[in-house]
């Protein structure tokens, strides 16, 4: 590795993952708030638990990627299954939202 990367690319990518995690946190909190709005119900609690799990899954993917980017000077490209996992968590959150809206 030749000195520091002038574009700070890994750093910027790490921060992009952090921003995205933050966005998914907002959505998960909105889901929980929406689910428990009318007092605790079976569906409400289930949706709340599922969105908490989805958020946790997203957090794990992001954390894994952030530590990979931080560990190596010349990081490898994102693995497609991690990208797909992040997208599927997002889609599942949207499905939770659909359940709540209907």
């Amino acid at each position: 590795m030749s000195g520091r990367d002038p574009g700070l690319q890994p750093e910027r990518t790490r921060l992009a993952w952090r921003r995205t995690t933050l966005a998914s946190t907002v959505v998960a909190v909105l889901a929980a708030r929406n689910a428990l709005q009318n007092g605790p119900s079976a569906i409400g609690l289930t949706v709340c638990a599922v969105s908490a799990l989805l958020w946790l899954g997203f957090l794990l993917v992001a954390h894994h990627r952030i530590s990979t980017l931080a560990a190596t000077g010349r990081p490898t490209a994102l693995a497609p299954r991690h990208a797909t996992a992040a997208v599927l968590y997002t889609v599942a959150l949207a499905l939770c939202a659909t359940l709540l809206v209907l």
Binding site: D5, Q9, R12, A16, R74, P75, T76, A77, L78, A83
Partner: peptide
Amino acid sequence: YRFSLANER
């Protein structure tokens, strides 16, 4: 790798 990271962002 910088192109891949830009794509990732």
